[in-house]
Write a protein that binds this DNA or RNA. Structure first.
Length: 881
RNA sequence: GGGUGUGUAGCUCAGCUGGUUAGAGCGCUACGUUCACAUCGUAGAGGUCACAAGUUCGAGUCUUGUCACACCCACCA
C-alpha cells in the first residue's frame, strides 16, 4: 500500500543506497553492447554542491540513466580535483586559526596536513551528489592527485618536454602577490575601477628648463623606467627623440626613444617605459634592447631598486607623489576610469613580474585541437560555441603551467650541479640520466614548482580510465560520448582537454560537448557568496525532494541559456510528483496490476487504444528530445502526458468503467492503466529517478527487472486512428464544460444534449463512449439525431431554456463566420497553388533556378495542396449541419 | 574597440529546420471538496511577439537597420 502522501524524504536515501549497494551504476565489462560514457567535471575537493553542480550533474545523470535504459553499457566516471590554490588556501586558513603558517610546518609536513584535511573534510560534495541521485560508478572514483593520475601527469609532462613543447623561460607573467605564485591569463579577472591619472614631468638632460611631460596611472613604477617613448609621427615631441631625460628623485638618465606604442592622441603623447612591470612596455623594451629593472619583491612591496623599499605599491605611490610635488615636477592629477587585473582566487592586484616559469607551447598543441573540431570529430552543442572555441584557440598564448605553491603535482624536473635539466618520470630515472650525462654520480635538486591544477584536469578524460596503463576501461569507454559543462570553463578545461588528448591519445576526449548556462538567482543576478543570494541545493532537496529539483533543472535547460532560480517552479514540480503519486494510488485502489505478458496491441476499448497510442507518442517525443539534448522539451513531453493526458483525461475516462458493470471492460482498463503508469515511470525515470523507483517497487506488479535497468521502448508503432477518436470526445467534453460555465448553469443541473451534426462514425463513437461522456460532462443524456440541418439562433435559445444543449454549439452559432473564414483560406490556398504551378511551369524559372529552389517550390505546393484538402474537408463538415 | 546572446501574458520563460486560433508554470478571477489528489479540480481574463523596413502566397520564426539589456575577449600610458 502506498502512503497517502508523497513524502520524498521517506525513500530517496534508501533507494539510492540500494542502487549503490547493488552495483546498479556499474557497467558490464563483458557485454558487447554499445558503450556510453561520461566523465564528470571534477568538483574541487574543497567544494560543496551549489546550484551549478546541481544543474550540471542532473543533466549528466539524465543522459546516463536514459542511455542505460536504452540498453547501452554505461559508465559515468566520477572524481574530484585537487584544486591547487583553492585547497592550499583553505588549509592555510585553518592553520592560521592556530597561528601557524605553512612555512612553520615546512613543505612536507604541510602537504601531509592537506592530505589529512582531505581525509577528514574533503569530498562533502560526493555525498551531496548521491542525494541528488547521480548514478556515477563510485567504485571508480578518482582524485587528480591519486598515484595513477599523478603518473599520467608525469608521463605526459616528460613527453611534452622531450618533444620541446614544455620549456622554461624568463618572461613577464601575471604574479599573484598573495599566494606568491605565477598564474595563467585565465586566472586574472579585469575589474573596472575609478583610478587616477598622474601628470608630471621629467627634465631633459643638459637642457635646463626643458621637460618632457608624462602621464601615468602608476607613478611608483617610475623607478623601473628605462626609457620614455614618443611616436616619430608626433610633430610636437619628435625633436626630443634621441635625447635623455632624468627620472626625478633617483636622478637616473634614460633615453627618449621613438616607438609607435606612444599614441600622440593619448595622455601627453609621451609614455614612460617600465619593461619589467608592464606587458606593453616589455615589448617596447625588447624592440629597443632596454634594460629591465625589477622594482618589486614577491609580495608586491617595493624592493631596494627604489627609494621606498618595503612599502606597498599604494604607500609608495603616495610617497612618490609627495616627493614629486616637493621637487616641483608634479603637474596635475585627474580621475581616470581604468581596468585593473585581480587574481580570481586571491582578490589582490596582479602584478606583471619577470620570473623564471615553465610554459606549454599551446599554439602548437592548439593546431590539432582546432582541426578536430573543424572536421567534426568533436561537436559543440549548441554549435555556436564552436566560434568562441576557435576564436580563443587561434589566438592562444603560451600557457604558464608552473605555480610556486606546495599543493599540487611537483614537476618531474631535476637540476644537475650546473643547472642542466633532467626531465624524467621519476627520480631514479632522472638520476640515471644525470649520472650518464656527467659520467659520474651527482647530487640532483628537484624543481620545487608544482603544476597548474588544470594541467592534470586536462588529462581527466583518459587518466581516470587508467592511462598510461593498458586498461579495458580505456579501450571500451574512450573517447567518451559527451562532456557536459558550463560555458565559463570552455577555456580552462574543454580547450585544455582537447589539446592534451589530441597530443597524447591522438583522439578527441569526447565526441560531443554540451554547454549549459549558469544558474542565477530569482532576479537573474549571478549567485555569489558575497552577494548572499546563493540557494543551497541541499536545502531545496530537503524541502521539495531531489526529484523536484532535478526536474526543474531539466525543464529550464534550453541549450546553453542561463537559468533563473524559481522556488515557485520547483514547488510546481514537487506538485507534479504528488500528482503522479496520487495517480498511482488511484491505480492501486482500482487493482490495476501490470503483468509482464500484457500485449498493448490487443485491447478493444477506444480509450485503451487511445491512451496507449498517446503513451507511445509521448515516449517517442521524449526519446527524440533526449537524443537531441533538448532537455526542456523532453520534460515538457513527459509532464504533459502524465498530468495533462493520463491524470486529467484517462483516469477520468476510466472512472465510469471502473464504477460500471462491464467486467470485461474493467479488466482491460485495469491492465491498460497499469501498463500506462509503468510507461510513465519508465520515461520519467531519467528525470525523477526516486519517485519513479519508489512507485515501481511498491505498486503491485510482476517485474522482471529494476526500473533503473528497465528497457526504453523505441520505434513503436503508433495507432494514429485511435488518437483522433478519443481526442474528439475530449474536445466535446471540454466544449460542454465551457458552455456550462459561460451560461452560468448550476453545477448540479443535468443536461440533455442532442447532437445533430453527427455522422455515422461520430455516432458510433458517441455510442461507445456514451456513459463516459455523460459522466464527465455531467449530462443527463446525450443523443444523436437526424441528418444535417441548420440550427437557427432562436432555436438555440429555445434549447437553452429547456436546459438542453445542442453541440457543438459554438459551431452552430458561428457557422457563417467559420464558413467565410475557411472560404477565404481556401481561396488563398488556391491562389498559392496556382502561383507555384506557374513558377514551376515557367521554363525560364526552371532553367535559372537552382535545383534546390525548384524542390522548395514543389514542396510548398504539395504543402498547400495538403492544407487545401484539410480546409475542404472542414468546409464539407460544416455543410453537414 | 572585437564578439556573442537576449527583448514573447502581471512575473519567470518555451516556441527546433517559416505554415491551423502564439504555449507552459506561477500569479489573478469565478465556481467547486464523501467517491486518487486542495501539494487538487473546472472554467475564465490577460499578448500591437522591443521598434522600423524588407524577403515571402504566408514572419514571433529569415534579412537589414534602430533602441534597450546581459555576458565574453582585447586594450586604454
Amino acid at each position: 500500500m502506498l502512503e497517502k502522501n508523497y513524502n520524498p524524504k521517506d525513500f530517496e536515501e534508501k533507494i539510492y543506497a540500494d542502487w549503490e549497494n547493488s552495483g546498479d551504476f556499474k557497467p558490464d565489462m563483458h557485454s558487447d553492447k554499445d558503450n556510453f560514457s561520461i566523465v564528470i567535471p571534477p568538483p574541487n575537493v574543497t567544494g560543496v554542491l551549489h546550484m551549478g553542480h546541481a544543474l550540471n550533474d542532473t543533466l549528466q545523470d539524465i543522459l546516463v540513466r536514459y542511455n542505460r535504459m536504452c540498453g547501452k553499457n554505461v559508465l559515468w566516471q566520477p572524481g574530484m580535483d585537487h584544486a591547487g590554490i583553492a585547497t592550499q588556501m583553505v588549509v592555510e586558513r585553518n592553520l592560521a586559526k592556530e597561528g601557524v603558517s605553512r612555512h612553520d610546518l615546512g613543505r612536507e609536513k604541510f602537504i601531509e596536513t592537506v592530505w589529512q584535511w582531505k581525509a577528514r573534510s574533503g569530498g562533502t560534495i560526493t555525498k551531496q551528489l548521491r542525494r541528488l541521485g547521480a548514478s556515477c560508478d563510485w567504485s571508480r572514483e578518482r582524485f587528480t592527485m591519486d598515484e595513477g593520475l599523478s603518473r599520467a601527469v608525469r608521463k605526459i609532462f616528460v613527453n611534452l618536454y622531450k618533444d620541446g613543447l614544455i620549456y622554461k623561460a624568463k618572461k613577464l607573467v601575471n604574479w599573484d602577490s598573495k599566494f606568491m605564485t605565477a598564474v595563467s591569463d585565465l586566472e586574472v579577472i579585469q575589474k573596472e575601477t575609478l583610478g587616477k591619472m598622474y601628470y608630471y614631468k621629467y627634465p631633459i638632460e643638459g637642457e635646463a628648463g626643458q621637460f618632457i611631460h608624462i602621464a601615468t596611472t602608476r607613478p611608483e613604477t617610475m623607478f623601473g623606467d628605462t626609457a620614455v617613448a614618443v611616436s616619430d609621427k608626433n610633430e610636437k615631441l619628435k625633436h626630443l627623440i634621441g635625447k635623455n631625460c632624468i627620472i626625478p628623485i633617483i636622478n637616473r638618465a634614460i633615453p627618449i626613444i621613438a616607438d609607435d606604442h606612444a599614441d600622440p592622441e593619448k595622455g601627453t603623447g609621451a609614455v614612460k617605459i617600465t619593461p619589467a612591470h608592464d606587458f606593453n612596455d616589455f615589448e617596447v623594451g625588447r624592440r629597443h634592447n632596454l634594460p629591465l629593472i625589477n622594482i618589486l619583491n614577491p609580495d608586491a612591496t617595493l624592493n631596494e631598486n627604489t627609494p621606498f623599499a618595503g612599502l606597498s605599491t599604494q604607500e609608495a605611490r603616495v610617497k612618490t607623489i609627495e616627493k614629486l610635488t616637493e621637487l616641483g615636477f608634479m603637474e596635475k592629477i585627474e580621475d581616470h576610469p581604468m581596468v585593473i587585473p585581480y587574481g580570481d582566487r586571491s582578490g589582490v592586484v596582479i602584478e606583471p613580474m619577470m620570473t623564471d616559469q615553465w610554459f606549454v607551447d599551446a599554439p602548437v598543441l592548439a593546431k590539432e585541437a582546432i582541426r578536430a573540431v573543424e572536421q567534426g570529430e568533436m561537436e559543440f552543442v549548441p554549435k555556436s560555441y564552436e566560434k568562441t572555441y576557435f576564436e580563443w584557440m587561434r589566438n592562444i598564448q603560451p600557457w604558464c603551467i608552473s605555480r610556486q605553491l606546495w599543493w599540487g603535482h611537483q614537476m618531474p624536473i631535476w637540476y644537475g650541479p650546473d643547472e642542466t635539466i633532467f626531465c624524467e618520470e621519476n627520480e631514479k630515472e632522472a638520476q640515471v640520466a644525470a649520472d650518464k650525462h656527467y659520467g659520474r654520480h651527482v647530487e640532483l635538486r628537484r624543481e620545487t614548482d608544482v603544476l597548474d591544477t588544470w594541467f592534470s584536469s586536462g588529462l581527466w578524460a583518459f587518466s581516470t580510465l587508467g592511462w598510461p596503463d593498458k586498461s579495458e576501461y580505456l579501450d571500451k569507454f574512450y573517447p567518451t560520448s559527451v562532456l557536459i559543462t558550463a560555458f565559463d570553463i570552455i577555456f580552462f578545461w574543454v580547450a585544455r582537454m582537447m589539446m592534451m588528448s589530441m597530443y597524447m591519445m591522438k583522439k578527441v576526449p569526447f565526441k560531443k560537448c554540451y554547454i549549459h548556462g549558469l544558474v542565477r538567482d530569482e532576479k537573474g543576478q549571478k549567485m555569489s557568496k558575497s552577494k548572499g543570494n546563493t540557494v543551497d541545493p541541499m536545502e531545496t532537496i530537503e524541502k521539495y525532494g531531489a526529484d523536484a529539483l532535478r526536474f526543474f533543472m531539466a525543464a529550464m535547460e534550453t541549450q546553453g541559456r542561463d537559468i533563473n532560480m524559481s522556488e515557485a517552479r520547483i514547488a510546481g514540480y514537487r506538485n507534479f510528483a504528488t500528482k503522479l503519486w496520487n495517480a498511482a494510488r488511484f491505480c492501486e485502489m482500482n487493482n490495476c496490476q501490470s503483468v509482464t505478458n500484457f500485449n498493448e496491441n490487443q485491447v478493444s476499448l477506444g480509450i485503451s487504444k487511445w491512451i496507449i497510442a498517446k503513451a507511445k507518442q509521448a515516449t517517442a517525443e521524449v526519446t527524440r528530445h533526449l537524443d537531441n539534448f533538448r532537455f526542456s522539451d523532453a520534460t515538457n513531453a513527459v509532464y504533459q502526458f502524465a498530468w495533462g493526458t493520463f491524470c486529467d483525461w484517462y483516469i477520468e475516462l476510466s472512472k465510469p468503467v471502473f464504477y460500471g458493470e462491464d467486467e470485461q471492460a474493467k479488466a482491460e482498463t485495469r491492465a491498460v492503466a497499469a501498463w500506462v503508469l509503468d510507461r510513465i515511470l519508465v520515461i520519467l525515470h531519467p528525470f525523477m529517478p526516486f519517485i519513479t523507483t519508489e512507485l515501481w517497487n511498491n505498486i503491485s506488479a510482476e517485474r522482471n527487472c529494476k526500473l533503473i535497468h528497465a528497457p526504453w521502448p523505441k520505434n513503436e508503432q503508433i495507432d494514429v486512428n485511435a488518437l483522433s477518436e478519443i481526442d474528439w470526445a475530449v474536445e466535446l467534453i471540454s466544449a460542454i464544460r465551457s458552455l456550462r460555465a459561460e451560461m452560468n448553469l448550476p453545477a448540479g443541473a443535468k443536461l440533455h444534449i442532442i447532437l445533430k451534426s453527427a455522422n455515422a462514425q461520430s455516432r458510433a463513437n458517441i455510442a461507445a463512449l456514451d456513459k463516459i461522456i455523460c459522466t464527465l460532462a455531467r449530462l443527463e443524456k446525450i443523443e444523436c439525431v437526424g441528418d444535417d440541418y441548420a440550427m437557427s439562433p432562436d432555436m438555440v435559445q429555445q434549447v437553452f431554456n429547456e436546459c438542453t444543449l445542442l453541440l457543438p454549439l459554438k459551431g452552430v452559432v458561428d457557422f457563417a463566420a467559420e464558413r467565410e473564414r475557411l472560404g477565404k483560406e481556401l481561396e488563398q490556398l488556391n491562389k498559392n497553388i496556382e502561383n507555384y504551378a506557374r513558377k514551376l511551369s515557367n521554363s525560364g524559372f526552371v532553367e535559372r533556378a537552382p535545383a534546390q529552389v525548384v524542390a522548395e517550390e514543389r514542396r510548398r505546393r504539395a504543402e498547400a495542396e495538403e492544407k487545401k484538402a484539410k480546409v475542404e474537408e472542414a468546409l464539407a463538415r460544416i455543410a453537414n449541419f
